[in-house]
Every structure is written in C-alpha cells, then in structure tokens.
C-alpha cells in the first residue's frame, strides 16, 4: 500500500515538474483543513497557549495579580522538589491510583458482564442506576457526603462501639486514615459509571456467535470468559485502563471539597497541592498565592506523568503483544 503510494507520488512528481506535489496535496485536501480547523483553533487558543504561557510563569515569583516581574530562574522547580508536602501529595496520589483503578475496573467489568446479557430483563434500568453518580457535580457530592458523615457518622460510631469493634468515636472525614478511605470510596462511586459503559461498549463489539459456538463446544461460562471475552476485550481494556489511570492521576475536586487536603496533608494530592500554591491556602490564613511556583509544580508533575506514561505504554505493549501472540 505504502509502496504503491510512493510510486504514484514519484510518477506524479515526474509529470508535474515544477509544481510541488506537497502543495498539490495540500490544495487537494483543503476541505480537510477547513473541517479540522475549528478544533485546532479552540485547542491552540484555550489549551495549548495557556500551557505555553504557564511554562513562562514557572521562572517567576508571581502572585497572579498584575504582571510577572520577579525572575527567579529555576528556583521554583528546586523549591517544589525540596518540598516534603509535594512528595507526600505525590505519594497520596499514587496510593489513590493504585487502589481506586483496579478496584473500580474489576467492579465495572463484573457489572458489565452481567448487564451485557441480552436476556437479562431490566438491564437498561440497572445500567442507569449504576451510571447515575457520574452526572453529579463534585459540589453536590460534597454537600451530601459531608452531611451524611457529620450528622450521622455518630450513628455508625454508636453501632461500632456497641459491637465492641472500636472504643472511641471516629471523626470520619477528620481522621488521616479514614478520610483517605472515604475519598477513595466516593471516587469509585462517582466515576464507576464511565468504566461500566466503556466495558459494555467493548463487550458489544464481541460477536455473539463466538459465545454460541463456544457453548456448542461445551464451554462453560468461565471458559468462555477466559478464552473469548478476555482476548477480545484486551485492546479496548488497555484503553479503558489508560483512561482510568490518567483520570485518577488528575483527582482534584473530590479532595478539594471533601477535606481540602487535610488533616495535615493526609489527603493532599498533587492537584490540590498545586491549587493551594496558586490560590493561597485555607481562607483563614492570608498565604500569598504564587502562580509561578504552582506552574512549576504542575510542569514537574506533568513531566513525571509523561515518564510514567511512557514506561507504562512500553510495559503494556509488551504485555499485549506477548499475550496476544499466545492467544
């Protein structure tokens, strides 16, 4: 295919003489450019340009008001790297990803397998049930979760104490350990719906005949899962895994609204850390915001993520090709 194209190109070039084939190809594809242009304009103006602008800010100490003037070179990056809060936030973020992603994907896949059965009645209702949390905004989740725990956490405490499981009251969202567990739980609850429908979509691409044939061959449910579902779902599964990991690394608003990173950074994740740098800390203390430092932190984090993504991609690729080769 590529070869024929090359040959064609070559012969065209020979025929066209002076006129460059590139220009001809560009002219020929003019409508393609017109169609892709609006997307590129939006992307350039509101995504790429702010990224580049922020890169410039990383070299300044700047409160985000007025224009940046105080050039500090690479100081901001050094400061971030030396800040123990950053590393603690990074550790918390990884902990969140490592626990939430597998937990959520396993639940989502199991549910998707059950709900994909066309003979299951009410399956649309169930899909709706489990997807619904996705439409909720973080602000509303914060209100409800806060209300539930602060008003009725005592009820749970009383039960736990009467059963002799605990002997003191637990401040659910104010305890370093439980606050993180709650954030993870709410995180699974909030975004499970996305992964559920991704898996459902992936399962729908598997032809039903495969299962029929397997059944005729006497394969049980476990066998067809093992030998049909898993291999057929592998490439989609990798995409879902990647999306889930990328999304979890950007965890922000749930933490911000539920605990604001506290107590004492026990639930601080990188994005809340950066946010606190950019907008100042808690409202009670007049901490000077430093957008330069925040930008440096976010670029440093972005670099770490890209390195991580490359390592992960290489790892997954070998995994897919090796397993794919065997299957």
């Amino acid at each position: 295919m590529a070869d024929t194209e090359l040959v064609l190109l070559g012969s065209r070039r020979a025929r066209q003489g002076r006129r460059s084939p590139l220009r001809r190809r560009i002219a020929g594809a003019r409508w393609s450019y017109v169609y892709v242009l609006p997307m590129l304009v939006l992307l350039a103006a509101f995504v790429v340009y702010p990224i580049i602008a922020s890169l410039g800010y990383t070299f300044y100490r700047w409160d985000g008001i007025g224009d940046p003037t105080e050039f500090v070179g690479l100081d901001n990056f050094l400061k971030v790297m030396k800040d123990f809060i950053f590393w603690k936030a990074l550790r918390n973020t990884f902990l969140y990803v490592v626990i939430v992603v597998p937990l959520q994907l396993v639940i989502a896949l199991a549910l998707a397998l059950v709900l994909n059965n066309p003979r299951l009645r009410l399956r649309n209702l169930y899909r709706t049930l489990f997807f619904l949390p996705v439409v909720t905004s973080a602000a509303v989740i914060a209100v409800v979760v806060q209300l539930l725990f602060s008003n009725f956490g005592d009820v749970v405490n009383d039960v736990l104490m009467s059963l002799g499981i605990t002997n003191t009251y637990i401040d659910w969202l104010g305890d370093p350990t439980f606050a993180m567990i709650i954030i993870m739980g709410v995180g699974v609850w909030h975004t499970l719906g996305y992964n559920l429908v991704y898996f459902l979509a992936g399962l729908q691409t598997i032809p039903g005949e495969l299962y029929e044939a397997a059944k005729l061959d006497g394969a049980g449910a476990i066998a067809s899962f093992r030998y049909i579902t898993v291999p057929m779902l592998r490439s989609v599964g990798v995409v879902i895994l990647l999306l889930s990991i990328i999304g979890s690394f950007q965890i922000f608003d749930l933490v911000q609204v539920l605990t604001n990173g506290g107590p004492y950074f026990a639930t601080e994740v990188v994005n809340t850390y950066i946010y606190h740098l950019a907008f100042g800390g808690a409202s009670s203390t007049a901490v000077q915001p430093d957008v330069g430092l925040a930008s440096a932190a976010s670029f440093f984090y972005g670099l770490l993520l890209i390195v991580f993504a490359v390592v992960q991609a290489v790892f997954l690729r070998t995994l897919v090709s090796r397993r794919g080769g065997r299957a």
């Binding site: 992307l43 702010p50 990224i51 922020s54 950066i274 925040a294 930008s295 993520l305």
Partner: peptide, 13 residues
C-alpha cells in the same frame, strides 16, 4: 495535551 498540565491560572484565557 492529554498529558501536559493545563495552566493553573485562568489569566491567559
């Protein structure tokens, strides 16, 4: 752009 951090200031926009 999926990986790169989006700016932490709204000022450019």
């Amino acid at each position: 752009t999926v990986f790169l951090p989006h700016g932490y200031t709204i000022i450019p926009i």
